[in-house]
């Protein structure tokens, strides 16, 4: 029995190895037979061919045996599938919201993060959906993935067995920044998790505006340190002059509160020159916008 960093990883790995081993045996058998025939029945060694057209028992044998073999492979692919797909009733639910191009993880108490933190030793159920196009949440270390589909709730579940930080990838092509739509899964000791879960946002030492930018997925495309991503950086934005394209015409405008509000509420109205017009409308309340503006003001 192979163990992995989670309860499902080892089961999937076992199934993979059994089926792959069967495939390797078949491939080696066919290839060696072929090579032996090519060597032995070469024109130089065997100038006169013998015509053998049919051999019914042999053909029945190599129809029936492979059928049994592939059914065996099907079985080993299936044996733990029901377990892997059906979360226990007491699993801790975490909502996953995917959007171009960021992940939001929402806990039962309404807390939102961009990093998936889970306790070791407790089953976790991810209830997933998407706000725009199809995405897919893939945890390579746990060997599981499932699509996040707009208008549909899909699920995954696992029980972390080891602590550690693991990659989360998007594996359904979702447009421009698909390859950067990554996040981290942190499996923490149960006590650490409980401590983290109890502390509220303030205690994290982060700014509320920054936290909003993170959970709304803004930081998927905009940075706070001056580097260029899909969208312009937030650093030094507030109060600067930006060149934008409005209705196909270039103009320069001051990046004041009105401008930023318009850019959030109606992203296609003014598009910063040199950047693609791809920002989605993300719902932001007035209070949230205020927090964000306050934070942006500090990013000189």
């Amino acid at each position: 029995m192979i163990l992995g960093p989670s309860n499902v990883a080892g089961k999937i790995e076992t199934s993979f190895l059994i089926i792959t081993a069967a495939c390797v045996v078949l491939l080696v058998a066919v290839t060696i037979t072929m090579l032996v025939f090519i060597y032995k029945y070469n024109r130089r060694r065997n100038p006169v061919p013998e015509d053998i057209e049919e051999n019914l028992p042999l053909e029945v044998a190599w129809t029936v045996l492979p059928t049994l073999l592939v059914l065996g492979m099907f079985y080993f692919g299936w044996v733990d599938f029901d377990y892997i797909r059906n979360p226990p009733k007491d699993a801790m639910p975490i909502d996953v919201i995917a959007r171009q191009w960021s992940w939001t993880f929402k806990y039962q108490d309404g807390r939102q993060t961009d990093t998936l933190r889970v306790p070791v030793g407790r089953p976790v159920k991810l209830v997933m959906t998407s706000e725009d196009v199809i995405h897919s949440l893939f945890i390579p270390a746990y060997r599981i993935k499932e699509d996040c589909v707009p208008g549909l709730k899909t699920h995954l579940w696992f029980n972390a067995d080891q602590t550690g930080t693991f990659d989360i990838f998007c594996t359904e092509y979702c447009g421009l920044e698909h390859s950067h739509m990554r996040a981290k899964l942190i499996a923490m000791p149960a006590t650490d998790f409980a401590a983290w879960y109890k502390t509220k946002e303030e205690a994290e030492g982060t700014n509320k505006g920054l936290e909003l930018l993170r959970t709304k997925g803004c930081l998927g495309c905009h940075t706070t340190d001056g580097t260029r991503k899909v969208g312009p950086t937030f650093k030094g934005l507030y109060g600067s002059n930006v060149t934008v394209v409005t209705n196909g015409k270039e103009r320069t405008t001051a990046a004041n509160e009105d401008y930023i509000e318009r850019s959030v509420r109606n992203p296609g109205a003014d598009v910063v020159k040199g950047y693609p017009n791809i920002m989605p409308k993300i719902p932001v309340t007035d209070e949230e916008l205020k927090e964000i503006l306050e934070y942006l003001e500090t990013l000189k």
Binding site: S15, F16, V70, S136, F138
Partner: peptide
């Protein structure tokens, strides 16, 4: 194709 046609390995290998 048989490996990725299997239910469990597919969870890992799909989309890779």
């Amino acid at each position: 194709g048989l490996i990725i046609g299997s239910l469990e390995p597919n969870l890992q290998l799909h989309g890779t």
